[in-house]
């Protein structure tokens, strides 16, 4: 088990190097650059000024030097400073990452509590009205973009009932209730989007499992249907669902960027958006890097969960 984790983490290294290259290069491909924007804002436009600013930010160096500097920084735990605020990127990430993490975790909880029971129900009542409703609901969730749903949730309640979701962020440890009442709406929207695919997968897998011979054995033992499901079917059915959840991690993060914007959640998504508008390379690169690492870790976690669910997988 330990050896497995070490092996897996070592295997992440080439992936990370590759990811860092992509992040770095794509960053320089965003049209427009930070200097232009700074110049425009400060009304100074001589080419001497421009060169001075470039040099101070290290942007006058060739790309590969900039890359190695950046990577060297990463290895020392230094992601550089924001080009605009002059604060370390690591500090900005430390402030925003937990917030996005909380949003993602809440969304995942929402997704699983919605998707798994409904998926199981749908499979047990295959082709009944309940099954059709559940499946239509999941199709709907799949089709509706969460930014649209988010906008609706912002607009309509305020028009109809003069109520809108709270938009003021309070740190969780300061006031959990205020924090949750702010986070819960975006978490539900994000969770519903995630639940759509998970629900369909749970249903398909449960149907598959319920056809298996060992389910017939369980019934022939005299087990009631709920025990057949809970003890004999669920774990087998969930094994592939876990993988699917891992695969959806990028979707979760992408959705968080949008919903943080709509609901003014000061997480990494909001930071990213601001950074992109400002062409704040170090911040963007830092976020991408953290996101990449997060996705790799989620996949590692998925593999470990796999081993827990499926006795045939041993490390």
């Amino acid at each position: 088990m330990q050896a497995f984790i070490i092996r897996r983490v070592l295997a992440l290294i080439p992936t990370l190097i590759f990811a860092s290259l992509i992040v770095f290069v794509s960053m320089r491909l965003i049209p427009g650059d930070v200097i232009d924007q700074m110049m425009a804002q400060n009304d100074v436009a001589t080419s001497a000024d421009r060169a001075r600013v470039e040099a101070s930010l290290g942007l006058d160096q060739p790309m590969y030097i900039q890359y190695f500097r950046w990577v060297g920084g990463i290895l020392r735990g230094d992601l550089g400073n924001s080009l605009w605020q002059n604060t370390p990127v690591t500090r900005q990430l430390a402030e925003t990452l937990p917030i996005t993490f909380e949003l993602g975790l809440l969304a995942l909880i929402v997704a699983l509590t919605v998707a798994i029971p409904i998926g199981i129900y749908s499979a047990m009542r295959q082709d009944t009205a309940g099954d059709y409703i559940a499946r239509s609901f999941s199709l709907l969730m799949l089709a509706i973009p969460s930014f649209w749903l988010g906008t609706l949730v912002m607009v309509f309640p305020s028009v109809w009932w003069r109520w809108s979701p709270p938009l003021e962020y309070t740190p969780f440890f300061e006031n959990p209730i205020a924090n949750l009442s702010h986070m819960i709406v975006p978490a539900i929207l994000l969770g519903l989007a995630l639940s759509a695919v998970t629900m369909r997968m749970t249903r398909t897998m449960m149907l598959e499992v319920l056809r298996q011979d060992y389910i017939r054995t369980a019934r022939a033992k005299g087990l009631a249907e709920n025990l057949v499901i809970a003890r004999h079917a669920l774990r087998n059915g969930l094994i592939p669902v876990v993988t699917l959840i891992g695969l959806q991690a990028p979707l979760l993060i992408g959705g968080a960027v949008i919903l943080e914007q709509i609901f003014v959640v000061p997480g990494m998504g909001l930071l990213l958006l601001e950074a992109v508008f400002a062409r704040d390379y170090p911040v963007i690169s830092g976020i991408f890097l953290v996101t990449g690492v997060a996705i790799l870790l989620i996949n590692l976690l998925v593999d470990l969960t796999y081993g827990f669910l499926d006795p045939k997988v041993r490390y």
Binding site: D213, R216, G222, H232, L309, D310
Partner: peptide, 18 residues
Amino acid sequence: GNRIAMIFQEPMSSLNPV
């Protein structure tokens, strides 16, 4: 499973793998 018990044809798949 109590008064009447059954044994099936496919021993490979009749036991729960997990």
